[in-house]
Design a protein around this nucleic acid. Structure first.
Lengths: 347, 347
DNA sequence: CTGAAAGCGCTTACAG
DNA sequence: CTGAAAGCGCTTACAG
């Protein structure tokens, strides 16, 4: 059945390999050299105005897209950045991560870079090693840091530029972080000034740098306000399946007036326990949290919390990475702000 | 201060470009040709056992990693797959997406493929166009489909292999999906058989194929059970800021005995409204949801819901894509199962 | 079993 | 202003 022939030139029968149009095709069609075509596109090197326009017009018309990969090979670049995303199902500040990714992509795209994503479990260096050995990236962004950071450590031994979202003590690491310490310090102060002295601090993995930072802010607030800190109100490493649930009794026994949670997932669990125990928020006990994510968005009462701009963080991280890739010497540590959102749960 | 000299060979002073060791270096060092080295690594073509081992040993020892990019260029492949992730902040079935990504990465890595991630807002084809024109991927996975699917449409006009997670009517698309229709049908049936006849259906964007599928399953369940379906209990397109909140009155006025929500975020909003109105679950009204995600995990009472395995979906999608890339003709439609999790909210 | 050479699709000194 | 040629780091017929 020979018919129509209306197939667009790029449609092919199954299995046939499609030859994309290349720079040679363009050069040949125009009767110029590849060099000239290349120059017209890149804007580098001298080239006659008329020639350039002729090339550009042809390219536009024939929908020629240079192969970024071939370009990269010639320049010893990849135009990719590796992004290592943590796979921790229980720490669901995911909307935050998605925003982060979005920010990264936004600035990466401006420089014609793409994101090579890799998800890895904490403590697992294999994914990163794979990325490194594949030689497919010009730099990498770590979306989360750890106190003893395996990935940052690996990268530091490399000459590949990288930036961490989150603080790290790995020597030479360029880092971008929200001001977790001062955020927690300010929120704690606000609570203390409301005459709420017994603030239980509920946090996750002590191995996360953020956990430490927040804890520090909490302590400083007590110092600032001249209130003695009670060690028995500190509850860290609470992300295990039932740890927090069991410690809740203790928290209440200690007479906590406020429960300050380091992330919304923990807070959600605290709220559940309180609900089951018929303890009312904020009447019987106040509650505050971090992240202001969708997880608690619908809670009644609304939850006082700290909010960080994931997108901004992502953008900044990517900018810092680009600076390094382009050979500049970026600011080592960049600290971004936060917002305190006061709501019903601490009234 | 000339000291130590203990720097590992790959450490360099600032700015110095590091020449990675190449196949030529290896060949030269061993006194063989690049061809031989290449063959030793790839396992293709005849090569003496002893030679191969000598090459492999040297490579191992000197930590030589072939450039996947150069390899790709020579083979007209990229060893990347593009993954288009939706950016919809309100539809937070994100743990689901993360699982999906994880599944994709898992099987991709087995074939030495990497993930090129792109986040795009619904209706925005620019990101995909960028990916396509950059020529950096051998295929793409769409993580969500729409009734009129812009991205699938674009891809179909291409000769690039792609697979959608979610059903689509785009001609020729290879698709992998959970059995949303039957899932919803079965859950609805279960409820109907509990003599709960007035089941309000609360759903999101009618433009999402899943919304349609579920709606269909809901209808079929009514047919199966011989219960007439009440149009006034159908509430779709509820994801706007206040739409659902306003419709809640209507839902209650219509005397709904159960509110069946198409995703956990919607369900969370329903629960909030009920709580504010002092309407008790399951005493006054039953509630059921989809996804079984962390958002509702901590809810009291526990919520009856459908659960889908994101990771499995991702793995399958990636397998189907690989099959296409390798020139096989994959199954057009793959349907995966679901689980029904009965809990307190419908007791 | 092994190698020289051409090629993948670009860029970039160098020369004119 | 323009082009021939070498090179980026691999693979793969082809010949021996």
């Amino acid at each position: 059945m020979t018919c129509c022939g209306q197939d667009s030139p790029s449609r092919h029968r199954e299995g046939s390999v499609v030859k994309n149009i290349t720079i040679s095709d363009v050069a040949e069609a125009l009767g110029v050299s590849k060099t000239t075509v290349s120059r017209a596109i890149s804007g580098k090197g001298r080239i006659g105005k008329e020639t350039r326009e002729r090339v550009l017009a042809y390219i536009e018309e024939n929908n020629y897209k240079p192969s970024v990969i071939a370009k990269g090979l010639a320049q010893s670049k990849t135009y990719n950045i590796g992004v290592m995303m943590p796979a921790e199902y229980d720490i669901v500040d995911l909307p935050f991560f998605q925003n982060c990714l979005f920010g990264i992509q936004e600035v990466a795209a401006m420089k014609d870079y793409d994101i090579l994503l890799s998800i890895s479990h904490p403590g697992d260096g294999e994914q990163l090693k794979r990325v490194l050995s594949n030689r497919k990236v010009d730099g990498v962004i770590l979306m989360r840091t750890f106190v003893k950071d395996l990935q940052a450590g690996l990268l530091a031994k490399t000459d590949l530029p990288f930036v961490t979202i989150g603080t790290t003590d790995v020597e030479g690491a360029v880092q971008v972080d929200s001001d977790h310490k001062n955020a927690c310090r300010e929120l704690t102060s606000v609570l203390l000034k409301k005459q709420l002295k017994k603030i239980a601090l509920v946090g996750g993995d002590k191995g996360h740098v953020v956990t430490q930072k927040r804890f520090q802010g909490y302590r400083e607030a007590f110092l600032d306000c001249g209130v003695p800190l009670q060690e028995n109100l500190i509850f860290l490493d609470m992300e295990g399946p039932d740890v927090l649930e069991q410690q809740m009794e203790e928290i209440l026994v200690q007479g906590a007036e406020v429960i300050l949670c380091m992330d919304d997932m923990l807070c959600s669990r605290v709220l559940k326990k309180l609900r089951t125990r018929k303890i009312r928020v904020p009447k019987d006990v106040k509650v505050a949290s971090f992240y202001h994510s969708t997880i608690l968005e619908q809670n009644v009462p609304s939850i006082t919390s700290l909010s960080f701009d994931g997108k901004e963080l992502g953008q900044m991280a990517c900018r810092r990475l680009m600076e390094q890739i382009e050979g500049e010497n970026p600011q080592q540590v960049t600290v971004l702000g936060y917002r305190i959102i006061m709501a019903d749960s601490t009234e």
